[in-house]
Write a protein that binds this DNA or RNA. Structure first.
Lengths: 185, 185
DNA sequence: AAAAACTGATTAACATGTTAAATGGTTCGG
DNA sequence: CCGAACCATTTAACATGTTAATCAGTTTTT
């Protein structure tokens, strides 16, 4: 017994405790910000800390994080086209395509071609999918509530505002402006 | 435990935006927060907005985000053991293992067994790896500077503080406390 | 209308995330 | 000293991220 269930992430909460003697004082000097404090790392760690709370529950219901995002998005609408679903669930086309194939095989969703444009596929959640959502929602909500309680509802709202603003700030920046050799085009 | 949480706070956050013509007005009603505003989604979108800025530059140098994280972490030390590197670069063992194999094959890093404990591997960056870092660093720094300028240095620092605090808040929560059926073990 | 251009969705190919199992080395109890 | 327990790392297997290519259906052009 005792199958060790929690060996998840590296748990970055560890100070530089490790090596005592610290003979490794003179690293390869390259002028850069201290890496662990970079914005991408901060966001990654924070998100991981949050998701770590949810994953076990989802897992117990046979769902991955992304599958759960899709089901939730579907539960909020009657039907939706694949492209719009990708947008809402924040997934790239290829990922979504694979996941929908899987969810359809599990009869958690239904899919049919749009009448006006046969290229488009229209997706909706099935009764079985709804039942699954209803089974997961309570613990999911409880976890979210616990997080909110721990961090503070006020602070949480503030954080979300700042994140939204960050998104907005970067919306314009094309994403290649500085990237060395623009290659051909 | 299982804080029952009466759903006194329905997702009333969605005004009657389009209840006019709306044929698809009556979705599958399930009581949950509005999904696109969930904390995990906010963090994911924000991080993606940031990474979108860096990826093209890295790509031009033949590096993925994770490979870059590893090289940067290595540049900051003389040598480091694999486990500690996983910690610092915030990667799981298996991912790190694969990436190190690849980076070693490209002669960007070097690896040898620890003298005292043959299980442990000690990794360091190679001259070639350092040269690559020096090639990438300028545009990377420029991008970071542009982000800071757009968002505001003050706000950025504040955001990082809040993210760190969030991490801290969740540090204790085991990550399975609410997860339905604990299954067998 | 037929070719060209375009668009939504999928497939392909490779890299990483994630959990479980295996491998090799180390330490400990008898 | 030996086997059991333990530990660091890797491998395995499957799901997703990411970019490029493909495929079918639609619109535009001539």
């Amino acid at each position: 017994m005792m199958t060790r269930k929690n060996s998840s992430r590296p748990a970055a909460t560890k100070p530089a405790s490790a090596s005592a003697g610290r003979a490794k004082a003179d690293p390869h000097r390259v002028p850069m910000r201290e890496f662990s404090r970079s914005l991408p790392m901060s966001l990654l760690r924070a998100r991981e800390a949050v998701m770590r709370q949810f994953r076990p529950s989802l897992r117990n219901h046979g769902l991955t994080e992304q599958q759960w995002r899709i089901l939730r998005a579907l539960a909020a609408v009657d039907t939706i086209e694949v492209t719009e679903l990708a947008h809402v669930a924040f997934l790239l086309g290829p990922s979504l395509s694979r996941i929908l194939r899987d969810l359809e095989a599990r009869h958690l969703i239904e899919r049919k071609a749009a009448k006006t444009d046969l290229r488009r596929a229209v997706v909706s959640i099935s009764a079985r999918g709804l039942k699954l959502i209803e089974a997961v929602a309570p613990s999911s909500e409880a976890i979210y509530a616990a997080i909110t309680r721990r961090y503070g509802a006020r602070k949480l709202a503030e954080l979300q505002d700042m994140l939204r603003l960050l998104e907005g700030s970067l919306a314009g920046m094309g994403g290649a402006g500085q990237g060395d050799a623009e290659a051909d085009e």
